[in-house]
Design a binder for these strands. Structure first.
Length: 637
RNA sequence: GCCACUUUAGCUCAUACGGUAGAGCAAUUCAUUCGUAAUGAAUAGGUGGUGGGUUCGAUUCCCACAAGUGGCUCCA
């Protein structure tokens, strides 16, 4: 038996493995989560317990997901207490824990300054030192409203809850907050706090609401963990694609060109070429056909597609030509549909898989732009599938498999799949269609032996979708692939095919972008590899470093041989020491360097240096060529 | 778009109080022809994001605009 001393002073004895329901009986009021402090075997442990919906007992350690949740949530309360002490006029909004750390939103007369943050951190240290216990209590609605008389945002939250729910509060010292928990036993459990930044945030995330001041922070049980966190942040900063894009001269954005419009420099364009070339070949090999469509189209087209109705805010303003409005395309689909409609189609011809690296322009809010990850002009690796309903399930599986295969080619093998279902509000299409499509999506995931999370109501109004998020080299998630059903456009464009019985039928339409957009994908690739691209993608694959002018001719010969094999070679013939040239090639992340001096020239060899392993000795030029060509072919990192 | 912050040489950053800017790297030139992450010297480079205001005088203070950064919203 485990003896647990509860925060309210009571003692419970529970058998190991018993559920929290046994422990929490009489104090939880059926709430989904309850926080406790307890003794295990007579020893006080840092034990906040989370009551999961299924009643399982989750003993919290910091490293458990729930542990972090409680830890950071308690820290956010401590911050709120500190802010209330320093800024008594501040009104509290909400303060949850997030993926990494926590925040709290405040309504204050003026924004917080860095000095304010320092003062708040200091105040928090005092609260932590006081080690006040967090005491849970509940109140009926009317009394809860009265208790929060000075907190309009809290009152709004209370009013939105069902009337019969008892509201829980957590009190630490002189500070009480409306809160569902869970929390640590006392403020002293929090050891090391760092407030990170201040940002504006709309109340309830709605831009029509007042903008509040949000303070982000993070906390850990050990100071060393703060250092680890900071180190990871620094690592992420070093990998920042904007920084590496500059250092490796890959791309730029320009004030005069316009916001969110990318200039691809020669080295960046080289990588893009390699990505696109590979992408096209792979699509052709996998049953796709390539199509090409223009960058602009008449207003009437966008009227028919419905984009002018539901997507106008996302489109560039029209340009007038010969009395007609033309719009830059925000999507490629209407063009592909027009190709479809150019002919009659038999069920025998389906499915069509039409792919295009289609450049689109979307008006993104200026504040949303972010390096290559969010731009206004970008190229989607788009394709549209037009399939007969009975083909749909196998077709979905096929797209999913193809997608994961393509991601693997680029070094992304760790991913997370989400299926988004019909949104609650308005949506187009028949219920049966939605159901069949959603089932096909889920079953495709299962049939491939994969798992997925369901994003209930997360689909677009025109259809359900699968999204794939990949995990990069330092553990961050990025959304790349999206596979979306469209019940809207086939209807609007009155797309048909002739079925076996001679009747006209409506095909299913699936949009899919596997890499997402080339720009965004490139940005993520840069960060994933920290600029050190695999040999097959590297803009310069081999850098030849002749030692003296005497060796230049030999360098030219080796270079010509490699270039003939489609290897990308540069010669650094500058009058510099070899150490200097190596340093530069190394910083440019060139996979291989060939040092060519008199010795190599006389023996007909090349001295190979790899960016990863340094000097790897000499070999014949042919052997080296074989090695590099094989690595390029096999897409070796 | 909203909140906050930032904007000085190609890059990274200095100039406490208002008295018209300085360093490293890069570039250019010269010398050096060298063996696995920086050879030395010299030269050049800036109407301080743009426009306006305050002031005898503005890179410095104020305002507007633009771009960027971190968030909110949105999303490939």
């Amino acid at each position: 038996m485990i003896k647990m001393t509860l925060k309210d002073g009571g003692v419970r004895e529970v058998a190991e493995g018993s559920t929290i329901l046994d422990v929490a009986k009489g104090i939880s009021e059926g709430l989904a989560r309850v926080a406790l402090a307890a003794e295990l075997d007579g020893k006080v442990v840092d034990l906040s317990t989370v009551l999961e919906k299924d009643g399982s007992l989750n003993l919290l350690t910091f490293d458990a997901a729930g542990g972090k949740l409680a830890y950071w949530h308690t820290t956010s309360h401590i911050m709120a207490q500190a802010v209330k002490k320093l800024f008594p006029e501040a009104k509290l909004a909400i303060g949850p824990s997030i993926e990494a750390g926590f925040y709290y939103d405040f309504d204050v007369a003026r924004p917080f300054t860095p000095e304010d943050l320092a003062a708040i951190e200091k105040e928090m240290a005092a609260i932590i030192k006081a080690d006040a216990p967090l005491v849970r209590s509940t109140l009926p609605r009317a009394e809860a409203l009265e208790k929060m008389a000075d907190e309009p945002y809290k009152q709004e939250l209370i009013r939105d809850l069902p009337e019969d729910v008892a509201l829980s509060f957590y009190t630490q010292g002189d500070f009480t907050d409306l809160c569902a928990g869970p929390h640590l036993a006392s403020t002293g459990k929090v050891k090391s706090v760092k407030l990170l930044k201040v940002a504006g945030a709309y109340w309830r995330g709605d831009e029509k609401n007042k903008m509040l001041q949000r303070i982000y922070g993070i906390s850990f049980p050990k100071a060393s963990m703060v250092e680890e966190y900071v180190t990871l942040q620094e690592e992420a900063e070093k990998r920042d694609h904007r920084r590496i894009g500059k250092e490796l001269d890959l791309f730029s954005m320009n004030d005069q060109v316009g916001q969110g419009l990318v200039l691809w420099h020669p080295k960046g364009a080289k990588i893009r070429y390699r990505i696109e070339e590979f992408w096209r070949k792979k699509h052709l090999k996998n049953g796709y056909d390539l199509v090409v469509s223009p960058h602009i189209g008449r207003g009437e087209l966008w009227e028919t597609s419905g984009h002018l109705g539901f997507y106008k805010d996302g489109m560039y303003a029209p340009m007038e030509v010969d009395g007609q409005d033309y719009y830059a395309k925000p999507m490629n689909c209407p063009f592909h549909i027009m190709i479809y409609k150019e002919n009659m189609h038999s069920y025998r011809d389906l499915p069509y898989r039409w792919a295009e690296l289609g450049t689109v322009y979307r008006y993104e809010k200026s504040g949303a732009l972010h390096g290559l990850l969010r731009v206004r002009g970008f190229t989607q690796d788009d394709a549209h599938l037009f399939v007969a309903p009975e083909q749909m399930p196998t077709e979905i599986r096929r797209v999913l498999r193809f997608s994961l295969d393509l991601l693997k080619d680029f070094g992304f093998t760790d991913y997370h799949i989400y299926v988004s279902t019909q949104p609650k509000g308005k949506s187009v299409g028949e219920t049966e269609q939605w159901e069949a499509a959603t089932i096909a999506l889920k079953e495709a995931v299962l049939a491939e032996g994969l798992e997925c999370d369901i994003d209930e109501g997360g689909g677009a109004f025109y259809g359900p979708k699968i999204d794939i998020k990949i995990r990069d080299a330092i553990g961050r998630e990025w959304q790349l692939t999206t596979i979306q059903f469209d019940f809207n456009e086939p209807e609007r464009f009155d797309m048909t095919y002739i079925a076996a019985d001679g009747s006209k039928q409506r095909p299913y339409m699936i949009h899919r972008a596997l890499l997402g957009s080339i720009e965004r994908f490139f940005g993520i690739l840069i960060e994933h590899y920290a600029g050190a691209f695999p040999v097959w993608l590297a803009p310069v694959q081999v850098k030849i470093l002749p030692l003296t002018d005497r060796n230049k001719e030999y360098a030219d010969k080796v270079a010509a041989m490699l270039i003939d094999l489609d290897v990308d070679v540069e010669i650094d013939g500058r009058n510099e020491k070899v150490g200097y040239k190596i340093r530069e090639a190394q910083m440019q992340k060139v996979p291989y360097m060939l040092v060519l001096g008199d010795k190599e020239m006389e023996a007909g060899l090349v001295a190979v240096r790899s960016r990863k392993d340094g000097d790897i000795g000499t070999m014949t030029a042919d052997d080296f060529a074989d090695k590099v060509c094989k690595e390029i072919r096999d897409r070796v990192n």
